[in-house]
Design a protein around this nucleic acid. Structure first.
Lengths: 214, 214, 214, 214
DNA sequence: CATGAATGAGTATTCATTCAT
DNA sequence: TATGAATGAATACTCATTCAT
């Protein structure tokens, strides 16, 4: 009871936390992202996170309310970072670029980011379908915004005539995300192709597969 | 320890089991498949399986050695059934059919089977990446045979010139399987498209995306 | 599975454990020794050990890996302590003492130690024949060293001519140990004889029974 | 409830049971004796007994009320058979034989019987100290009668002056029984000595160790 | 702030016992 | 009588969480 208050206090206080506290908090989040990317939601244990962060399980509770709280923050961060990255890449092309080129760049950025660049992003794809309802509702709210961004890119490429407008945009997006999210399960950097070649293939299938027939 | 041999007597006796015993065993496997398809490997609990099968958790041990044993049998069966179904569909076309048509039929069958037809198949796709090493080794042995079957179909379609032979077959297969396996996560039968339309889309992306450019 | 290594962190850390942790660990070992001395291996339950130690069953796992681990440590300690005690008593006599006197002192010390002095020693004698194969192999390794010590004393007393060298040393030792180990089952301190008188009797049977006839 | 009555009925009926029923009952008792001799009371499981008897665990309940009932009957039988055998051997010597010779014959018979001749007898020695209080009270009642028989033989040998009358008879008997009962734990028929030589050694220690000094 | 230690609710598993056939 | 099948109470074990220091 008194604890609850203290914890709430810790949370509320977060913005003004000491630099040292912020650092530790970041280390724990990083550790949790790494473990989640490795094990997925259901198999992730606090002990392994603590080990990875160089602390004790009990210490995590100073920085986070609970396992759920910690994990949710990793997942939210994962979605946020992916979105941020993809948007930055698309923005860099400028609004003068062809809609399909913008979409292809987004696709490439998404795949690469979650395959080799960010534990947070991989934590998300490895946990989809394991996260309990309530938490998923909240994470999914942000995830849907990310999806809408993609949807807008697709819509634009359809409007411009580059993509076949008769294709169901939602299904198209989900099939592509599924293909991308599954890659961490099988792709090996030291295999027969590198990450960029993999991106090429995904983009090729998307582009030629969906483009407007003449 | 010395008891292990005794406990497993249900296993040893299986061949001569009574029809009633076989029936219950099947009901339990079905229940486990349903729960695995719903929760995935790590979150699947024996209590839920027992509930679904209309028994007590303790009773499961009359038919199976352990949680691991039960789950592994569901997964093995899931791979076996998928393979069986897909092969039957391809065989039905006859060897006179064009290689690409055979491949497209296989793709369609795989997606449909695991999306709406079989809890066992969905149990597999929902559990990939969560199954502990040793068990995965055994399940994967059968899974690879299934993958090889697809690979042969792809190779044939490349040889016939229908598909672009420069594309990496392994990556192609895994991207497609990823897209298909993710569908149970988002596809709703009552949504804007039906299962066959979804199959059409996946096949279209595969076909047009990979076919040989002229 | 991969978790085993993590769970055992209490073990790995033992050397640097805090005094408070060491104390509790000792209390648990003492409690386990008491319960084992009372019930024997097979009937010993963690709940009873926890009760005796003033903890919860779950707490035992902070200090020990498993029931087996805890029990094995008690048994190893039991053998170690018996050996240590007996050797100390024999050493105190000095090497100038007659071999038979050294042997008699050892016998007396062994019986007394496990009858009234040490729960650990009694835990061993009460568990012989119940301990599962693998564990017994390890405990027995130390136990055999203890047996060899006795054997050496017997051999010396035979060489000196005090004992009849035609008697089978192994059988002699085991019969004597059997007689001694069974005493906790029936001896009552408040009975017709005290511990020292019991020791006298055992030593008398050994000495007169085995000594060289003239 | 209705079961209780039926079971009681089965028990009450035992004397008039069909020959076939009696046979099965005997097979189960034999099997239980074998398992008890191997595992001791606490580790004995009904499944192993049923296996050994060539039946199912459930079937045991037609012949015996419970695990406790079955085991108790084995133990009672074990004491009864030992007593019977030892008494027969002593009686065969006739009352004209020297008291010490009668005692030595009894000792020899006891050791040999429970070491190599009877699973029932070994079931008893392997279970001593593991049997729960209530049951032990009942078994011990018969066991004490057996002990008294030995005690009478000892008393007679003391009266005749062959044994030292100052020795505590109870302790003497228990030490000897302990030595004998422990033998199944270590004695191997194919070892350096045979059963009769082992008997010789036990008798020698008893005789020379306790006889009246001149 | 951190941690060593403890807790307790939950989970798989075992096994004597029951019961329908 | 026998047995295949089921049951449920008991037991070891796990792990997020708490708390004293």
């Amino acid at each position: 009871m008194a604890m609850k208050a203290l914890r709430a206090y810790a949370q509320a206080k977060r913005p003004q936390m000491s630099p040292r506290g912020e650092l530790k908090r970041k280390q724990i989040l990083d550790a949790a992202a790494k473990v989640l990317a490795r094990r997925g939601y259901a198999s992730t244990q606090l002990l392994e996170i603590a080990d990875e962060a160089g602390t004790q399980p009990g210490s995590l509770y100073y920085h986070f309310e609970s396992r759920e709280d910690l994990i949710e923050q990793v997942l939210q961060e994962g979605v946020r970072l992916s979105f941020e990255r993809v948007r930055a890449v698309v923005d860099a092309l400028g609004s003068g670029a062809a809609p399909l080129d913008r979409l292809k760049a987004a696709l490439r950025a998404h795949l690469k980011f979650q395959l080799v660049e960010s534990d947070y992003a991989r934590a998300v794809s490895r946990s989809i379908g394991q996260v309990p309802g309530e938490m998923w509702k909240r994470v999914n709210a942000r995830f849907r915004a990310y999806g809408r961004f993609f949807d807008d890119l697709i819509r634009a490429a359809m409007k411009s005539g580059e993509l076949d407008a008769r294709v169901d945009r939602g299904a198209l997006r989900m099939l592509t995300i599924g293909a991308a999210n599954y890659t961490p399960e099988w792709f090996r950097k030291d295999g027969s192709m590198n990450v960029d070649q993999l991106c090429d293939l995904l983009v090729r299938m998307f582009e030629r597969g969906v483009r407007t027939p003449h």
